[in-house]
Write a protein that binds this DNA or RNA. Structure first.
Lengths: 163, 163
DNA sequence: AATTACACTTGCAAAAAACAAGAGGAATCA
DNA sequence: TGATTCCTCTTGTTTTTTGCAAGTGTAATT
């Protein structure tokens, strides 16, 4: 590792000119914050990766009550950033499906780590202890298990004959 | 694990009444989103955990250019949520220090996982490959290494004799 | 041909964020 | 002691984003 400031820290915060600020990345935290550092993106990630939701109306029906314009905005933003793959639903041509890309799937470890943290600190959590325990015990296996579910959902939609 | 919907997914999204919505947690993703699902909180976490920043003016001087009212708001929010411990600086009584709590430190795994993801997908990243490699190879050791740095920063401030 | 389902879009009021300037309190200095 | 400086916020004001309600366009259904 490399030294930074007074102590040894991640060294990738470069100085930047004022004009660069808006679009410059290079810092991994800022890159992530720019893409998922938003409550709604965060919850949509959960819906896609963990709850098997794929359509506009499924997202809309969530308990948080996202409004339609915000949902449309976030979906297009996530698509633009390469996290979602937008296609018409083969089961019904007037419907649209948003599939998770590999890039989104690769956020599973971070998402699950965040959930383990929540389970530890949220007194009102409804998640079972077994969830956190299994991820801590064997992260790779837990992730593989979630990925298999994601595959099952997507294949169910894409592999189905048109009605 | 338990079954959910059509497939096997995390089962902890309970139905909720309209009045509950604003403050209800129980879902780990929503809990995390409510606390760190914000660009500025995210970046402040980075400054405290990875860059050794502790004071208002240090946060203010970051390359992202946070405005003063937003900074004050986020600091008090993070303190209210038990992520930061606000104390006067023993080195100088007119200054305030914000120390990371255990609860904040426990976000390191999630934060680092997010950074590994960014390094993989951000073409402009300035983080060295060694960073991601070491975390993937041995997460626990990498986290311990960052924690030691955090200890060093805090002890340097708290243990220093008043000037 | 008319109706329904679905995925958005638009317009408007309300809330939040960005920006600029300044207040107040401790330490330092004349 | 009183003026000065440093530092942590406040307080307006402007700009942007959000939330809500209603409407539009396209594809299936009847």
């Amino acid at each position: 590792m490399l030294s930074f400031c007074k102590y040894i820290f991640a060294p990738y915060i470069a100085p930047m000119t004022k004009t660069d600020r808006a679009h410059w990345n290079g810092c991994p935290t800022r890159y992530a914050a720019g893409i998922v550092g938003d409550k709604w993106c965060f919850l949509l990630m959960r819906d896609v990766l963990l709850h098997g939701k794929r359509t506009y109306s499924e997202f809309l029906s969530g308990p948080e009550g996202i409004s339609t314009n915000i949902l449309a905005d976030r979906l297009s933003r996530l698509e633009r950033n390469g996290l979602l793959d937008r296609r018409t639903d083969p089961r019904k041509g007037s419907r649209v499906c948003y599939f998770p890309t590999r890039k989104l799937r690769d956020l599973l470890p971070a998402l699950l780590a965040m959930m383990v943290w929540s389970v530890k600190y949220d007194a009102d959590t409804e998640a079972p202890d077994s969830f956190a325990a299994s991820f801590v015990a064997d992260p790779a296996a837990t992730i593989a298990w979630y990925e298999a579910d994601i595959d099952r959902v997507d294949q169910d939609i894409l592999g189905a004959p048109a009605e």
